[in-house]
Simulated scan of single mutants.
Amino acid sequence: MSNIDTAKEEFSKDDYSFVIAGEGKIITNKEKGLKSVIDLIESGEDFSEYSLCDKITGRAAAFLYVLLGIEAVHAKKMAKLAVQILDRAEIEYSYDEMIETVLDAQMKEIDPVELSVLRSGSAIQAIEDIKKAIGYSK
C-alpha cells in the first residue's frame, strides 16, 4: 500500500485533523489549526518520504507542507490557491472537493491565517506570517 493510501485509510478511522504516513510510521493529530504542523517542521525530522491526508488544505497549509517536504497530499477540501503552491513544489495532490478558499469558523469571511499568507511569496516567508497570525510559541 502506498503512503498516501495508508494516510487516507488511517484518516478515515477517526476525527483527525491530519494523518502523516511514511517509512512504516503513522502520525495522527486531532488538534485544529496549523500549530501541530509547525511543530513537526520545527522538530527537524525528515518527512520527504511521507504522505499526508487532511480535512482542509488552504494556501497556508500548502506552504507548510512544502517546508515539511511531504511527497503527496490528499485533502477532503482543497483551496484553489493551495493547488498552485503544491504544483510549484511538485508535490502530488488529490482532493474530494475543490473550494475557492478556506473560511473562518463562522463560514463568513476568509480565514485569518489564509489572509496572512496571501502576499507570502515563499514558504519561508509564509511560516513566519503564519506564526504571527496564530501567535505561535513552542
Rank of each mutant, 00 (worst) to 15 (best):
N29I: 03
A60F: 10
Q84W: 08
M78R: 08
D15H: 13
F47G: 05
L67W: 02
V73W: 13
Y136R: 08
S51H: 05
K108D: 02
E71N: 13
I56W: 02
I99M: 12
L34R: 12
G22T: 02
G58S: 02
E9L: 11
M98Q: 06
A60T: 02
K32T: 12
E90H: 04
Y65T: 01
S17V: 00
A21V: 00
D129T: 00
A89R: 00
A133K: 01
K131S: 01
I134D: 11
T101E: 11
Y93I: 01
I110W: 02
A79I: 08
S137A: 14
S137Q: 13
S51R: 08
C53S: 15
M107G: 07
G24H: 04
Y95L: 11
T101Q: 11
D14H: 04
K76M: 13
D111E: 14
I124K: 15
D5Y: 00
S36E: 15
E49I: 03
V66E: 15
Q84Y: 11
I99W: 13
V117A: 07
L67E: 09
R59C: 02
K138P: 14
I26T: 15
Y136W: 08
M78V: 07
K138G: 13
A7K: 05
E10T: 14
I56F: 06
K76Q: 14
E9P: 07
K80P: 12
